[in-house]
Design a protein around this nucleic acid. Structure first.
Lengths: 121, 121
DNA sequence: TTCTTATTTAAGCAATTGCTTAAATATTTA
DNA sequence: TAAATATTTAAGCAATTGCTTAAATAAGAA
């Protein structure tokens, strides 16, 4: 690592240190947000999240039909989203209805507005 | 796949088809946005993006110092961000200054507001 | 209880990710 | 020109991702 370090004089050591402390002060945020974004950063999961924001609730079976993929594939995405506290499931008989949680909704909602710019209702 | 399909009667076929066409109409958006989010969905890259939003421009060398990682590691993240048209580089002598591009800035800016809620300037 | 349906879980595997180290490419300075 | 600095690129590799298929759970219907 030492051999890769730049020896430049241009850098402002005060600026560098301010940046460093900013990072460590907000470590929690960076971790939490990057985790949420990595969940939404998969095309299938982004579709699921958007579908849930429009339809309020959907079961794995619906999502399998809509997305055109196998149930286990969908189920594994749902599990990740559930583990990340982005969605939650509610059991009604055999079927489990998934819906968005409040937790990260503030973070994700603005993203959805970029999806259907020509939405006419 | 057929054997995995649900046979349920609950589902509203009209709703399913509406969802399907919504997806195909916005395929482009889902692809573009999920790609941008997957870039920001890495903790190191999210930090780089936020640092650039604050400091306006930084070189790989600065970022290496700030992030505490090797130059090549930083450089490879910068390449991904550049390929994804999220940042751009401007060469000044030996050093290359990276900065945010306008392209996805509208998408990313709202995310940054969740990072330093207690920012006192 | 047995059968069917809805869902999850697990194992396997190819593809991707993100680092490491070493080498290559630019640019400036001596 | 040669030497030093800043950056990129490439190869290698462990870890992760996202699918597949098959099996395990869970709940309703016969």
């Amino acid at each position: 690592m030492a051999s890769d370090t730049c020896i430049r004089l241009l850098a402002d050591p005060i600026q560098i240190n301010q940046c460093k402390s900013m990072l460590s002060e907000n470590q929690e945020s960076f971790n939490r947000i990057s985790e949420a974004l990595s969940l939404a950063g998969n095309e299938v999961r982004l579709k699921i999240l958007y579908l849930l924001s429009v339809e309020k609730q959907l079961c794995p079976c619906d999502l399998s039909d809509i997305l055109g993929m196998t149930i286990p594939a969908v189920s594994q995405h749902l599990r990740k989203l559930k583990d990340g506290r982005v969605i939650e499931g509610r059991r009604v008989g055999q079927t489990i209805f998934y819906s968005l949680r409040q937790d990260h909704l503030e973070l994700l909602k603005p993203l959805f507005s970029h999806i259907q710019p020509t939405l006419s209702v």
